[in-house]
Every structure is written in C-alpha cells, then in structure tokens.
Design a protein around this nucleic acid. Structure first.
Length: 907
RNA sequence: GGUCGCGUAGCUCAGUUGGUUAGAGCGCUGCAUUCACAUUGCAGAAGUCACAGGUUCAAGUCCUGUCGCGACCA
C-alpha cells in the first residue's frame, strides 16, 4: 500500500476516481427486473444556466440517494438533462443577435433564428452538466436528455394532442399576463407579486347629466384612462346609488361613459368609485362583461400606448403615466397625489411589471385534480417536510386553467393547423396532430410554442421513453414511478404538481376516475424532498447583482467536493432556508482531513492485514484481548449503522451527517484511537486492536460514501477493503443487528454496560484534565492524582485502565487512598480525584470553583427532592422515570456532600 | 387579508410519539507543537428555550393568546 500523505488533497483524488467511475460504467442504469429499481430524475436546469449554490445542495441530495440505492443493491438510475428554457434562451439569443449584428429575430425569420438558437445552445448550453461532474454527481450521462430532443419533443406534442382529444385543451380569448419585454403571455405561476412604491392619484370626473357634480376616483394607473369605458360603484353604496345609470365625462379623450353598479367594487378602497378599463384589468374585464361594456385596448404588445390612447398614443407606458397625471392636472381633474404602496405582478423572467392583456391563447384545463390531491393525502406520494402538502392542496383547490401558449419561437411549436381564412375558433377548421395536414397548402400552423413547463411536466415519463399513453418501454416499466424527487419548494406548482397531474392522466389508458392502485402506478414519484433555498450569511437571496453568491467551482477547488457536500449537508435544516457560511464548508473539509489522518494513523500503526471482506476483518479480532473500549466502540458502530439507515430512509440528511461526524470525531478519534495507543505498543494486543480499527473504518467508509464519495472510495482501496474495480458502491453495511450478530458468532458481545463504563472513565479523565488545566499543569505529563474510589468496582475499573488513564490525562501515577482528607478535587462517577499540587494550592480559586459547582448541585438536589416528595409524581410517573429520578437525586446528594466537605476543609 | 413556518448560548442551528442536570459547530478565553491530524488536541466562560396563560405528576416539546421575523397565496 502506498504511503498516505499528511493532509488530504482532494484535487487529484477526485478527478482520478470520477474518470474511473465513468469508464467503468459505475453510474449506468441497467434495466434489471430481478432487482428493486430506484430512479431519480434530475430537475432539469435551464440549458443556459450555470451552477449555483442551490444546485450544489439539490444535486448533493440526489447523489446521496442514488449512491445509497446502489450500495443497497438496487438497480439505480440518476438521469440528467436540461430544459430548453423558452423565454430565457430566446431572449439571450435575441440579445446577442442585436448586439453583434443589430438585427432582430424578425429580420432573420423563424427558420434561421431557430438554427441560431440551436447553435447558441450547443455552444453555451449544458455547462451546468459538466460542472455537476466536479461535484461528483453520479448521473448516467449516456442517458442525458434535452427537452427539445426529437423523441422528447414527440412526447410533448403527443401529450398536447391527447389532452386535446380528451377535451382538456381549448383555445380562447382571455385576460392573460402579458410580458411587454418578452412579448408573450405567461401563466399565473410565472408572475411574481412584488410590493412596489408608486403613487395613488385621486381625480374627479364630472357627472355629465349633472354639470357641477363630480365623482372622485382613485387610481394607480391614470395612463389607462383612455381605455375607461365606465365607472363603477357598489350597488348598495348610499353615497352613489342614485347615480347608477347616469354618465360621467371621461377626461381624455373626452367621452361620455356610464356609471354602473357592481358588487366587485370595494367600498372601502379610496372613494369607493372605480374606473373600469376592461382591456387592462382582470376585475374590470369581468365587470365589463357583466355590463356589456366595450373593450378598448389602448396599449401595444410592447408596452407602448396604442393610437386609441388619444393624447398618450406612442408613449412608453410609464412615461404615459406621468403624462396622464399632468394632463389631469391641466384639465383640473387631479385632486391630489399621494405616495402609495401596492403589490404589482412582475414577469419572472424579464423582471418588469406584467400587463393584463386580452389575447387569443391555448389553455389546459387540468385533469385528475381529485386524484392529484388523493395521491398526497393518502400517502401514496410523501412530501418531506410534510407541511408542503398544505401548500400543494391549496393550489389544487384554487387551480386556474393553464395558459400554455407562448408567443415565442424557441420551443415546441403548437401542433395545431388552421384552415386558411376560416374561423379558427371552430374546431372543424383545426387540425390537431403530430403531423401536418395532407394538403398543407390550405392550412397554416399556429405560430406559437408551448410553455416550457408544458414540456418539463413530462420529465419523469418522457426521459425514459414515454411517447404516448398506453405504450410502454422496458425503462418505463422498470423505473417508473421513480423513487424520489429532490427539488425546491419554489416550483411546487410550476413543476411538482403538474408532473403528478401529467402522470395521472397520461401514464396509461384514458380513465375518468382512478383507484388508489392506479394512482400508485401512475404517479411520477413516491417521495418528494423539498430542500431549502440557500441564502447568504445575512439571509439575503443569492444573486448576481448582490455579488453574494460564491462561485461553486471555486468552493470545490478550495474545500474539495466531499468537504463541500458534507458541509452543505450539515447546515441544511430540512425544508428551511439555509444561511450559507463558508466556515461550515471548511468544517466539512476538516472532517475529510480528520478521516484521512485517522486512516494514515492506522497505516502507520502496523502492517495491513486481510481486509478483503467483513468476515475477514472480524475473524482477526481476538475476543480475549478486547477491552471495554473495544466493546464500546463496536457497540457505538452498530448504533451508528442503525441510525444512519434510519436517517437516510427518512431523508433526515442533516442528522445523518451529524451522526457520522460526532461518532467519528468524538468517539473514535478523540477517545478510542487515543485510548488504544498504549495497547498498540504491546505486540500481544496490537493486531486485535488494529483489527477493530479496520472494522470501524470499513463500516464507517460505507456509511460515509453517499455524502463523501471520493475520499471514501480512495480510502476503501488504500486500506485494502476492495481491489481494483471493486468499488465501494457495491457494498453495504447491513443493519447494526447484523453486525452485532456477526460479532457474536465470533464470540464478541458488545454490551451496553461497557458503554457506560467507558463513559465513566471518559468523565474521570476529563475531570483530571480540568483539574490540571485549572492548576496550570495542563502540559505536564508527570502529574500525580490521588483517588478515593467510589467502590471496589470503580477502583478495579481504574486500575485496569491505569495505563490508558495516565496516557490520556497526562499522569505519571494514579494513587488510591481511603481518605483524601481536606484536599480539593473533583467528584466523578468513579470517585473523588485530587491533583497533587504540593503546597501550591490556590485556595481562593478552588473555593470559587467548588462553590460554583456546589451551587448547581444544591439546585439539582432541591429540585429532585421536591419532585420526589410530590405524591402525584410518585404515584403517577412510570417506574423507570421514578427510578431514574431517585438515582439522580442520590448521585447529586453524594456529589454535593463530597463537595461541601471539600469546601469546608478548605477553611 | 388567508395559509404555512420560525423565535433555544455572541452567531448558525440540533433537540422525531412530553420524562434524568437542554446539545453541536463556529466565535471567544487560557494552555499545548519532536505524538496521525494546527484543516489539530485539552480545558473554560456563555442559555428565565420570544412573552403570557393553560393542560399534565412532569412542558423547549402539547393547547390558546400576544409580540417579532420570514415565505407562499390572494
């Protein structure tokens, strides 16, 4: 075996193993019906995207699940891919086109533009997938899918056609969210509500039939005044009821518009009078419909004012707002202007306020809403943390039809052709199919494309071969439904809920209602893990403009992929936002280094022996030469095995990482290895002791592997647990019970009582160290203590562990006495211990120290006494608790008395 | 306005069916470097578990209310 360098250097190790894993086919998903399947589909990142902190965490979690599944012998698949990201990609390509050539996509034309966009994607896209390799992501790269791939596209269009045929798709003129920058409609889910500071304009309209009578109206959007076709008041509003049916003068362009009564008016808002602009507001549109008002569109698709806007025509919408206010003032219609804050919908992609706009769009009425709810409420799909269930159900309860058409070119073109010159809203004039009509000359295809989410909602299906309902593939049959989905709660509606709906409706033949068994077979996954959003140290969202987002690849280079993964995991409270702190990642790096050095110590402590499998290692243990520490660490190892199994199964990733950390660092390195040093010096005991280390390291590496794949693989081979090509992913720890059984068969029974004995000894050593530290003797190795042992057993225990204690506490001798007299010391579970400091006792300091501890114990004693003198407690508390309380009180009393005696003796 | 979450050491957070003296990491203070590891070790200081009620023999944990913070939906 090669000598292990002094500190862990991840760089070379990571690259070497990653290449070997890939070339050996470690990540390949193999359809093997004889094994349980476990698939994870990566949440497809935008093809234009680069790796950010959120991806690191999200993909680490997926990698953990998949690597774990491989260790468990499942036929695992982690399928990678990217999303074409309609708006994002198209606007970037358009921007580049504009900058480099000063041309727009219209100058280029659809065909050429799409070629450009594809080239752009091939050149810049998919960076993120290569970056994921640096993280150690064990994706089956041969199966990488892009949403615009031919097969995937076929699935997307087929889904649309199928839903059309089943009556869930319709076309209509509706109010949609319009993004003036991208110039496309958006779904409600792509609109982000933001509080915005603006102004509230209070203006007055003169009642036409009663000159001199004015109605005061409040608005935040005076630029839409030219589109007003009425004003509305609440029909029960005493102030205005008599005016309903009369007319007011719209100030510009001046026109008589009616006053209508409508219950949608909020009497409390402003003056209780509403200007009604049916073309530019959802509520107003509804009011307009109820009162048959004309719809006057005063805005162009690009956000400038249309010719119908009269004096505002041609202006940009926000300039028009200022101009409108000025105009009102000139006309004497402006009463006052006040600062106002309200929430405004912004386009998620372009980050500009959206305009409610009337346009022809395609909509999907969601199928299987009932089943989608039942899938989660019945536990067929489980959310972690569970509380997101409510959010999910609330959305389904208030679900709105989905506007799926986008006025873009980059995407899946809507598979609908219209008969030229005919009424498009008459289904007879439509051809809805994956293929063009047989007489193309008479038809024209819908120019729009589908919402990107209308392709990614098929992700779990179409990535493994779904092309139409009822037709399956070996991959689909094997891996669908997938094992788990890991994603952020921010896309619970955009993606998670829609995938569930898509699976329920499209995976299988058409059914009106589904049974629970059918739901179970059709859902895309059985578990969803929602990871938190990563924020900076101050709780702000990571963003490029704030410059508070560290470069992931730099972090990997600096701390190692394993360190980063471990660090991220240990700070990721489930479902809660995560405040990123580089110090935590450093902690992960440190942990890897600690592990590295523990392995290094093992190597330096003696020759390597047969580590080829668990049985070989166990057979090297010599039961007769094991001591309490061996039993305790083996017992702890078995417990860690069980808690690791449990935590991973429950998606308790933080607890998983913390369990590994405290066992390895606290129990194994700080105690076991240190304690075993004296035995390692004894040739008679050495080999068995090394075998224990080999056993612990082996099992520990197996448990660590999902979160720290590189270092675990490296050490797995360096320490001889697996030969060439015998990767750690092929092995598993089994359960703690199985480990204990294997030990028992070999004549070793790690009992819990040994753990208690070791704990007492650890406490004793800690007390001695504290006494030495207190006395300024911390560095001395020749200190001497006197012990008044609690009883014979305690004395025997200390005597048998004398070497160990001397080494760990830095003592040259432990002397036993029946009476410590008045010497100051510390009370431990094994007895009272006093440091021999000659005549240099700092009486005052000792008095303070002991006094303080005494005070604590007094409190504990009185609390215990009052508890035990409480009749109700004694009669009602379970025996175990009662017994515990009694024992604790006795211990507290004994310690208190001992300390009191000591204090008294100090004078 | 509605829903959900959070409030525990200076900071970030654990604390999973209520049960012994509430833990960790970081930070801070002191000590240690021919010892596997200074990416280290040892020790120490530091908490009215937001507040107020209630249920219970027993509450950080359950219930109600209040305050503060955050997210999502209107």
């Amino acid at each position: 075996m090669a000598e292990i360098p002094k500190s862990y250097d991840p760089q070379g190790v990571e690259q070497r193993w990653y290449d070997l894993w890939v070339s050996s086919g470690c990540f390949k998903g193999v359809v093997d019906p004889s094994r349980e399947s476990f698939a994870v589909m990566i949440p497809p990142p935008n093809v234009t995207g680069v790796l950010h902190m959120g991806h690191l965490l999200n993909n680490t979690l997926q990698d953990i699940m998949v690597r774990r599944a491989r260790q468990e012998g499942k036929s695992a698949l982690w399928l990678p891919g990217t999303d074409h990201a309609g708006i994002a990609t198209q606007s970037r390509v358009e921007k580049e086109l504009k900058q480099k050539e000063g041309r727009s996509r219209h100058d280029l034309g659809r065909e050429k533009f799409l070629v450009r966009a594809s080239e752009w994607r091939d050149r810049h896209g998919g960076i993120i997938l290569s970056q994921l390799r640096k993280l150690g992501a064990s994706c089956d790269w041969d199966r990488t899918v892009h949403t615009l791939d031919a097969g995937y596209s076929e699935a997307v269009l087929q889904a649309f056609v199928t839903l059309y045929e089943r009556g869930y798709v319709y076309r209509g003129k509706r109010m949609v969210n319009w993004c003036p920058v991208s110039q496309t409609g958006l779904s409600d889910e792509e609109v982000v509500m933001k509080p915005s500071k603006g102004q509230l304009f209070r203006m007055r309209y003169e009642v036409a039939d009663e000159p001199g009578t004015w109605l005061e109206i409040s608005t935040t959007r005076p630029e839409t005044i030219p589109g007003d076709t009425a004003v509305a008041v609440h029909p029960d509003d005493e102030r205005y009821r008599r005016l309903i049916g009369k007319y007011v003068w719209r100030p510009f362009p001046r026109a008589r518009i009616p006053i209508v009564g409508d219950t949608a008016v909020d009497r409390e808002f402003g003056t209780g009078v509403l200007k009604v602009t049916p073309a530019h507001d959802r509520t107003d549109f509804e009011i307009g419909r109820r009162h048959s008002l004309p719809v006057l569109d005063v805005m162009n698709p690009d956000g400038t004012m249309s010719p119908d806007a009269g004096p505002l025509a041609g202006m940009e919408r926000f300039k028009a707002r200022i101009a409108a206010a000025k105009l009102l003032e000139e006309l004497g219609c402006l009463v006052k202007t006040e600062p106002y804050e309200n929430t405004v919908g912004f386009s998620e992609r372009a980050d500009v306020p959206i305009e409610p706009r009337l346009s022809e769009q395609w909509f999907i009425r969601y199928p299987k809403i009932e089943e989608a709810k039942r899938a989660v409420t019945s536990g067929i799909i489980r959310f972690h943390p569970e509380r997101w269930t409510k959010t999910y159900l609330h959305w389904l309860d208030n679900i709105q039809d989905w506007c799926v058409s986008r006025q873009l070119w980059w995407g899946h073109r809507i598979p609908v052709w219209y008969r030229k010159g005919a009424d498009r809203n008459d289904p007879a004039n439509r051809h809805v199919s994956l293929t063009a009509p047989s007489d193309p000359a008479g038809w024209e295809q819908d120019p729009d494309v589908l919402d990107t989410w209308a392709s990614s909602w098929l992700w779990c299906l179409a990535t493994i071969g779904w092309r139409k309902p009822g037709v399956t593939t070996p991959e689909l049959a094997h891996w669908y439904p997938t094992g788990a989905l890991a994603t952020g709660p921010d896309i619970i509606f955009l993606w998670v809920a829609r995938m569930i709906i898509a699976g329920l409706e499209l995976h299988g033949p058409e059914r009106k209602n589904l049974t629970d068994d059918e739901i179970r077979a059709r859902v895309p996954f059985h578990r969803v893990y929602f990871n938190g959003i990563i924020r900076d140290k101050l709780g702000r969202k990571m963003s490029k403009s704030l410059g508070n987002s560290p470069e992931p690849l730099d972090l990997i280079a600096k701390f190692g992929a394993d360190g980063l993964r471990f660090g991220l995991l240990s700070i990721a409270p489930k479902g809660q936002d995560i405040l990123f702190d580089e110090d935590r990642v450093a902690q992960g790096r440190n942990f890897c280094n600690k592990l590295w050095n523990a392995a290094r110590f093992r190597q330096m402590s003696g020759p390597m022996a047969n580590n080829s499998d668990l049985g070989a290692v166990i057979s090297r243990l010599v039961p007769a030469s094991l001591d309490d520490d061996d039993f305790a660490i083996l017992h702890g190892l078995a417990e860690l095995t069980d808690s690791t199994n449990r935590n991973l199964a429950d998606h308790e990733f933080t607890a998983y990482a913390q369990g590994l950390y405290s066992f390895f660092w606290g129990d194994f390195c700080d105690w076991y290895v240190e304690a075993s040093k004296s035995r390692l010096a004894d040739p008679a005991l050495r080999d068995s002791c090394l075998a224990v280390q080999d056993l612990v390291l082996r099992q520990f590496l197996l448990m660590l592997h999902p979160v720290a794949p590189f270092i675990s693989e490296e050490l797995w081979h360096l320490l001889g647990y697996g030969g060439t090509e015998d990767f750690i992913q092929r092995h598993h720890t089994g359960t703690g019970g199985e480990l204990l059984k294997a030990l028992r068969v070999h004549g070793i029974k790690p009992a819990a009582s040994k753990v208690t004995a070791v704990a007492s000894l650890r406490e004793f050593v800690a007390s001695v160290r504290a006494l030495k530290s207190q006395a300024g003797q911390a560095t001395r190795r020749d200190a001497v203590v006197s012990v008044q042992a609690k009883d014979g057993a305690a004395r025997a225990s200390l005597e048998s562990a004398r070497d160990k204690v001397c080494r760990l506490a830095g003592l040259s001798a432990v002397e036993f006495t029946d009476d410590l007299g008045g010497r100051p010391g510390a009370v431990t579970p094994l007895g009272t211990v006093s440091l021999d400091v000659g005549s240099n006792v700092d009486i005052a300091a000792e008095r303070t120290r002991i006094g303080k501890e005494l005070e604590k114990l007094e409190k504990a004693v009185s609390a215990g006494e009052s508890k035990l003198s409480n009749e109700a407690f004694v009669s009602k508390a379970p025996a175990q608790i009662l017994e515990g309380a009694r024992r604790q009180l006795e211990e507290s009393k004994a310690r208190r008395d001992e300390l009191a005696r000591m204090l008294a003796a100090l004078g």
